[in-house]
Amino acid sequence: MKTDPKTFIADFFTSLSDDLVNTDEDAAVIIDRYHTPDIMQLADGNPIDRDKLIAHTRPVRKNRPESRMEVHEAYTDGDRLAARYTLHVRQRGKDLAIDVHFFGRFTPDGRMREAHLLTRSV
């Protein structure tokens, strides 16, 4: 990664969210822009593949949450990125904050290949 890791991870999720919430582009096209076809995320022990990611876009698009990331630290080693951040979300008049510990792998063109996320509400 040529970009600062904090900037990269914030830009990745911000751009993905903006594309989902602020466009009518096909969700599968958006997911494929940001992820490899064999993407596998493990979020709090729950496996999420490409099809589940696409399905997850429906409630995101319906609720149209506002969000911002506060990246506390991020490090890279080759194609691997580790980050600790807080996701601040405003949805239906409620404010949520979620601490995230993220460990992932990315392709040279910036698409996510694999991710392990541990989260907790704060």
Rank of each mutant, 00 (worst) to 15 (best):
M1R: 04
K6M: 12
K6P: 02
T7L: 13
T7Q: 14
F8Q: 06
A10K: 13
A10L: 09
D11H: 08
F12Q: 07
F12T: 04
F13P: 00
F13D: 02
S15C: 03
L16V: 02
S17P: 01
S17W: 07
D18F: 02
L20D: 03
L20E: 05
V21G: 00
V21Y: 00
D24A: 14
D24G: 15
D26G: 10
D26I: 10
D32G: 07
D32A: 09
R33D: 09
R33Y: 05
R33P: 04
Y34Q: 00
Y34I: 00
H35K: 01
P37K: 04
Q41I: 01
A43E: 11
G45K: 07
G45N: 08
N46Y: 10
I48C: 12
I48A: 13
I48S: 08
I48H: 08
I48R: 12
I48E: 09
I48L: 15
D49K: 01
D49M: 02
R50N: 05
K52R: 15
K52V: 04
I54P: 00
A55V: 09
A55H: 07
H56L: 12
H56M: 12
T57E: 12
R58E: 12
R58Q: 11
P59L: 09
K62L: 12
R64S: 06
P65Y: 00
P65I: 00
P65K: 00
E70R: 10
E70D: 15
E73N: 14
E73D: 13
E73V: 13
T76A: 01
T76V: 10
G78N: 12
D79P: 15
R80E: 11
R80Y: 03
L81V: 11
A82E: 02
A83T: 03
Y85Q: 06
L87A: 09
V89K: 01
V89W: 05
V89L: 15
R90S: 08
R90Q: 08
Q91W: 00
Q91P: 01
Q91K: 10
R92T: 04
K94V: 08
K94A: 13
K94T: 09
L96W: 08
V100Q: 08
H101L: 15
F102P: 01
F102T: 02
R105I: 00
R105P: 02
T107N: 10
T107S: 15
D109I: 11
R113K: 13
A115H: 07
L117I: 14
T119W: 06
R120H: 14
R120F: 11
